[in-house]
């Protein structure tokens, strides 16, 4: 039986069978999430395919960012966060949201880029190296090599290679965001989370980041939250549509955008609400 069909919860329809050779990087199953008394996610189940870009779309307040932030347990920084269900990271099936799993361990495996570019108040080099430093990597030449690699992956190396010692704040917004992507990539995460990474950027910077994300999927599995449907259609392989904390539909991006099976998805995609 097809894996994607197998894990689909009753609320989710996956009519287009996903290619059988697609491997699963992570699997969300029956995930509930509470902000104190408020339940923000209701029994979300979906697969995250290896070396693919998975987009999560939906109207404001639908829970798409909440879902993304479960993947690296950033919710745990605030009191009252509670998870039920599982996000299993393959191949070992470690449940990222289990209470017995240390959130720091989760964040060491899952990188994240936030909505607003938020470089650390340090130099460009130090920013990218910070993820390596917290992992105890001190060997100068190895750190330098991995910083360079990450900056190249994030398509910003050419712009910053002469000024690695300069403060990251001197970069433009789009450059800062690509720097943040490099920072997340440097420790070679198993999963890269992008939370509306272009919503604070101008169209040119956005275009750069979009083409970068498509390239990234060769090396890393990407989950991106976006309110920009065009962006989801352009860069993602699979798309999940959420509404009111529930996953309404999940499938191949092309199918979701051309032939959605649920009326709500169709209404949202054609701009009737949201």
């Amino acid at each position: 039986m097809n894996e994607a069909l197998h894990i689909a919860s009753p609320a989710v329809t996956t009519p287009t069978p996903l290619s059988p050779e697609a491997t699963i990087r992570a699997r969300v199953s029956n995930l509930d999430f509470w902000y104190s008394k408020f339940q923000a996610l209701h029994s979300v189940s979906m697969p995250i395919h290896n070396n693919k870009v998975t987009a999560i779309i939906g109207p404001s307040g639908c829970g798409k960012s909440t879902l993304l932030r479960c993947f690296n347990r950033i919710h745990d920084l605030y009191p009252g966060a509670r998870y039920e269900g599982a996000i299993e990271l393959m191949p070992d099936g470690l449940n990222l949201v289990s209470r017995s799993v240390d959130p720091i361990l989760v964040r060491l495996m899952v990188g994240m880029v936030f909505q607003k570019p938020n470089p650390f108040p340090k130099s460009i080099f130090e920013n990218v190296a910070s993820g390596l430093y917290v992992r105890g990597l001190r060997n100068r030449s190895e750190v330098e090599g991995r910083v360079e690699k990450a900056l190249k992956q994030a398509a910003i190396w050419d712009e910053v290679q002469d000024r690695l010692k300069k403060p990251a704040y001197e970069l433009s917004g789009g450059q800062q965001q690509r720097l943040c992507i490099a920072r997340a990539l440097a420790p070679e995460p198993k999963l890269l989370l992008l939370d509306e990474p272009t919503s604070a950027l101008d169209p040119i910077a956005t275009a750069k980041i979009e083409s970068l994300i498509a390239d990234l999927a060769h090396d890393v599995t990407v989950v991106i939250v976006t309110h920009n449907m065009g962006q989801a259609a352009r860069i993602s392989d699979q798309t999940a549509f959420m509404h009111m904390g529930k996953l309404i539909e999940f499938g191949e991006t092309e199918q979701i955008f051309t032939n959605p099976t649920v009326d709500q998805t169709r209404d949202y995609i054609t701009g009737r609400f949201g």
């Binding site: 950033i74 720091i104 994240m112 650390f120 910070s130 917290v134």
Partner: peptide, 22 residues
């Protein structure tokens, strides 16, 4: 700003590292 704290935790830093370095 909470963004600094979140991104520091986001790179996998523990509490001590977040506090001391960021």
């Amino acid at each position: 700003p909470s963004g600094l704290r979140e991104s520091a935790y986001g790179i996998g830093a523990n509490r001590w590292q977040v506090m001391w370095s960021y």
